[in-house]
């Protein structure tokens, strides 16, 4: 069996995408799809140190160059007449840098109520 990885499209060129690495998982308070939901806010200070605020938590991390870059492959199903669907991948981008948040998040003291809940 052969599954092809097609090169990036010439119109877009080979893009560079980014990654945020977090300890653990992100969960939404509400069930259902995560699509479209707000997670938090990301700030950089003047030294380039990232601070990520998620709900009541504050995470301080750092920007890192990946030791080996990652390619982002998107899976596609190609329909072929009379045959089984074929799968192929397309190179969408290269990731060379990431923001890494390795430490446990610290709680923000004081109420975030005002901030995170929009008044209707």
């Amino acid at each position: 069996m052969q599954v092809f990885i097609q090169p990036f499209s010439n119109e877009e060129g080979l893009q560079e995408w980014g990654i945020i690495e977090l300890q653990g998982d992100l969960d939404s308070k509400e069930s259902g799809s995560l699509a479209g939901k707000l997670v938090g806010d990301l700030f950089y200070n003047k030294d380039g140190i990232p601070t990520f605020i998620i709900g009541h938590h504050i995470l301080v991390g750092k920007a890192e160059k990946l030791e080996k870059p990652l390619a982002v492959l998107e899976k596609r199903h190609i329909q072929t007449k009379g045959k089984d669907d074929k799968t192929e991948y397309v190179v969408r981008a290269i990731v060379k840098r990431k923001l890494c948040f390795r430490d446990r998040p610290k709680p923000i003291v004081g109420s975030m109520q005002k901030v995170v809940n929009k008044t209707p």
């Binding site: 479209g36 707000l38 997670v39 938090g40 806010d41 700030f43 990652l70 492959l73 899976k75 290269i94």
Partner: peptide
């Protein structure tokens, strides 16, 4: 400290099409 922050912040959301596409990362 606002004075220590770069002026542009980024709000992080899940894409409206999140989980409808399948991606694979591969270390090169």
């Amino acid at each position: 400290d606002r004075l220590d922050l770069q002026p542009v912040s980024q709000e992080i959301l899940f894409d409206p099409k999140f989980s409808t596409t399948e991606f694979r990362l591969i270390q090169l």
